[in-house]
Design a protein around this nucleic acid. Sequence first.
DNA 1: TGTACATCAGTGAACGCGCGTTCACTGATGTAC
DNA 2: TGTACATCAGTGAACGCGCGTTCACTGATGTAC
Lengths: 184, 184
Amino acid sequence: MRVTKEKAAENRERILAAASRLFREKGFDGIGVDAIMEEAGLTHGGFYRHFRSKDDLAAEATARGLARGGEMLAAHDRLADYVDAYLSPEHLADRGGGCSMAALGCDIARQGAGVRGGLTAYLRQRLDRLAGWFGGSRAARRRQAIATLSGVVGAMVLARAVDDPALADEILTAARQAFGQAKA
Amino acid sequence: MRVTKEKAAENRERILAAASRLFREKGFDGIGVDAIMEEAGLTHGGFYRHFRSKDDLAAEATARGLARGGEMLAAHDRLADYVDAYLSPEHLADRGGGCSMAALGCDIARQGAGVRGGLTAYLRQRLDRLAGWFGGSRAARRRQAIATLSGVVGAMVLARAVDDPALADEILTAARQAFGQAKA
DNA sequence: TGTACATCAGTGAACGCGCGTTCACTGATGTAC
DNA sequence: TGTACATCAGTGAACGCGCGTTCACTGATGTAC
């Protein structure tokens, strides 16, 4: 049952969206091609008409997820707003729709060149954007951008790892205060 | 071929040590019971004389790995020394022997009660110890402990995820400067 | 202390299931005339 | 524009492999007398 080119392109997008969400929720090894295709409303056999392998999908889906994270970053133009949004209870709960670095950071180090290269390019962009929100020398601004990104990503990872909601909330609150304002 | 109680206890330790290292290196889903037993110098069939399941092993091995991290923390009595050691190139390279929060942080959120409970208890301890290195009110010290731990863990996660060694080094260096000294 | 027997850590084969990938097939789409 | 044919997105069964777990068996250890 061949479908129109438009429909096929739309299906490919749906596979990517499902994969991007499910990888972040369950990890690269925690979700299978069949479950991703089912989530996209297709059967698993057709997967290889769109992607060469699961690894290929991981690379494309990660890039897609990171791009969305970039939109979230672009939606704020002040450091405190961005940090508050990043370290919000909503982001804590929405692992599948949130930042890929927080959801998959440790796993990415074990992935192939496609995934890691995509993350590296994205991280550079995000650092550039963040640096613009700080004062001081070029080097000082970059240092603060790195410290802030490390801080918010680490806080989200720890808040999600902990099994006590009160402690998770305390971590997010403390990190919002610490990273939400530019320092000397 | 029954072995002495002492030998059996020693074998159990070897399984735990191998699991602790391999889980950190490859992730909970990235390594099998058979490979862990082989690393411990045993065959996979005997695994269930020591542990009820792979999940059980994950919980015990994670607790073991975190305890070692605690020793590393105890080995330093100044903030800057600890941060320098944590954010060193040696720690970056030694994923299997390093901090479990940096190696497995994102994966732990998806694990069972045993693993998450162990991490939570350990994280509380580490925060208490870190807080002692800061000045100010009790609340301020705790906030700085949380921000520092988030910062160093996040920096290590990002430095390992990136595929450019120069960028990884830049991240570690910037984070050492940012988190290595107590702030107001 | 010596002897007989029960225990159980460890072995290696086997089971069952899930998952990534392949394949023959379908039938609507796209294209060449 | 209409017709005939090639293309190919999608289907569902199947393959092969790896992995968590089980099991019958071994034989040295531990224990009861």
